[in-house]
Amino acid sequence: MKRYGNSFKEQALALLPGDANYDMCLTCGLCSSGCPATGLADMDPRKFLRMAALGMDEQLATTDWVWMCTMCQRCTHVCPMNIDIPKLVYHARTLWPREKRPKGIIGSCDVAMKTDTGSAMGARPEDFEFVVEDMLEEVKETQPEQADLSVSMNRTGAKFFLNQNSREPMTEPDEMVPLWKILNVVGADWTYSSVGWAAENYCMFAADEEAWEKIVRTKVKAVEDLNCEVWLNTE
């Protein structure tokens, strides 16, 4: 059994499956040459990885760059050794004291934890139900050809469970309507749920694993409670 110590590199290694190894880096630079975050905060993916290999733990645990990298995985995609640098970036995020992580991300996570909708904008179940109903009514009134448009809320046994980014119900509800119409045209059997419907999960970006898991479990439970077959995430 492998044993790991407390250094950044050792902890990062423990996250890797099987025989993967950060020492496999060939230093070819494909990662950095195709990374839009290269050069921000005087950092790039290759440098980040080399610093890990050299045991420069303190610098890795404190560089702001980990919040500028979007963990998009393009570096991994082009790496001849398939090294997962974003995983290392995520790990570095977990090393930041929670109160020092970006306020916007932490704040959105905290708000989402306060309601069982998972909404980072704090929308409650009744808010979502009201906006959807109100919007549907308006469309039917102003667009006569949409008289048969229907939206289910909390319908057990629908094939698709559709979630929704909070921005639409909270700031631009008209943008929900085109999606409803498309689903209606193709005859999809779908429903919203008044709980667990929010598509976003800032606790994941915040690298707050406990909160991340709680939000995902809330959402999974909502899908299972309605006995839906497919969970559709529009993010």
Binding site: C72, P102, K103
Partner: peptide, 14 residues
């Protein structure tokens, strides 16, 4: 390329 809005960047404070 990533657009730069992922990973929480839109709320990231940079």
């Amino acid at each position: 390329y990533c657009c730069g809005g992922g990973g929480g960047a839109l709320q990231g404070g940079y």
